[in-house]
Design a protein around this nucleic acid. Structure first.
Lengths: 212, 212
DNA sequence: GTCTATATCTAGATAGAC
DNA sequence: GTCTATCTAGATATAGAC
């Protein structure tokens, strides 16, 4: 087996186990066992478990980054945004161990705190650009002060929908139901500020979304 | 030292350390050391660390319960609700280790998952009664379907504002700034549905709240 | 690159003296 | 009730053979 392949196997196995059991509850032995390699071999490829988690976080970053790019002069429709949100939440679900206990991970892995902070800022800016754009198009009607609060609440939901779904015993984290609920929740947040016909459209969309 | 007193000392010391460092990062030795007793003594009073965490959770339940009682026919003003929310968030701050990684705690401590689930239901009902009451008084204008979404989002913020504040590196968790931010965030959530003059009042309130 | 064997270390937990 | 001493288990991490 080539170097690259074993490394990838370890990462894939770790991701699956981390997501299922929570990263703190998965030992390196457990990962090695599940991957069908020896513990020693695992330590040939990674310095420790934090190293694995950090690599997985980097990959998450690589995948999320393009989803946060909002063109300054773009004029996205509500459907564009809905699609975007959907992709973000789907991605988060695939790396859900990261969000299950973000605080502890940050405390344990050096540099992660800063990276997470930067990511939050990036998301905040993307949301702001998004709202601004909708406002320019006249789709949404909201004043500047309210915008800040709306953005912060959206950010909270985006950051925390996974632990909340788990606390609520929402079983649909793997099959995508929890993701749909969270997207619907976000859409509902901006509903009061939307003009017609977008308001009705979003309401219908969010409703049908919850059903799936 | 009487039995009761040492037990209380262990609980108080554990709560402080759990809040500061996160429950998974605090060992029984650490607690004993900080409390100025021997590790053996700690195990005389508690079976293990989970036992301590569980006892702290029970005390949290005892304190939160009266705050969730909403009289069926009560007619609370916005200020009553604001005060109520403030008390709830202050209490949560004092037991913040519980919310820092609720998912892991539930996974590790048997029966906690069920208790947390019951607590969430109780909170959901209290929020619903609260909204219903405001609606009966004509203070708030919102249809039934929207109410469910609003309640669920409020519940998410209540459950997750602590990990979010930590992820955002909000340093004010101990001094109460994060609590104020969270209360303001909740108030803003119902703002679009409020009639005048309550809307303006709440806006002013939330604004001044963030300043403190 | 991968294995087996093992060293090290830490936290959880208990026994028995006082 | 509290202490000291200690045992155990389990996880991390390394050494050295293949």
């Amino acid at each position: 087996m080539t170097h690259r392949k074993t490394r990838e196997l370890i990462l894939a196995t770790s991701l699956a186990l981390f997501n299922e059991l929570g990263e703190p509850n998965v030992t390196t032995n457990h990962v090695a066992d599940e991957a069908g390699i020896s513990p020693g071999n695992l330590y040939y490829h990674f310095r420790n478990r934090e190293d694995i988690a950090l690599e997985l976080f980097k990959r998450y970053l690589l995948e999320i980054r393009p989803l946060l790019v909002i063109e300054e002069d773009a004029e996205p429709s509500m459907e564009d945004l809905w699609l975007r949100l959907h992709l973000v939440f789907e991605l988060m679900g695939r790396y859900r161990f990261l969000f299950r206990n973000l605080t502890d991970l940050c405390a344990r892995i050096s540099n992660l705190q800063r990276a997470v902070h930067a990511l939050l800022d990036r998301q905040r800016k993307a949301l702001l650009l998004m709202i601004e754009s909708l406002r320019r198009q006249g789709i949404i009607h909201i004043d500047g002060h309210e915008t800040d609060n709306l953005v912060e609440t959206m950010l909270l939901i985006i950051t925390c929908w996974i632990p909340f779904a788990q606390a609520s015993s929402n079983p649909g984290l793997a099959d995508g139901q929890a993701q749909s609920d969270a997207v619907a929740q976000l859409l509902h947040l901006i509903l009061p500020y939307l003009r017609e016909p977008e308001a009705s459209q979003v309401e219908t969309l969010a409703h049908s979304y919850r059903e799936t």
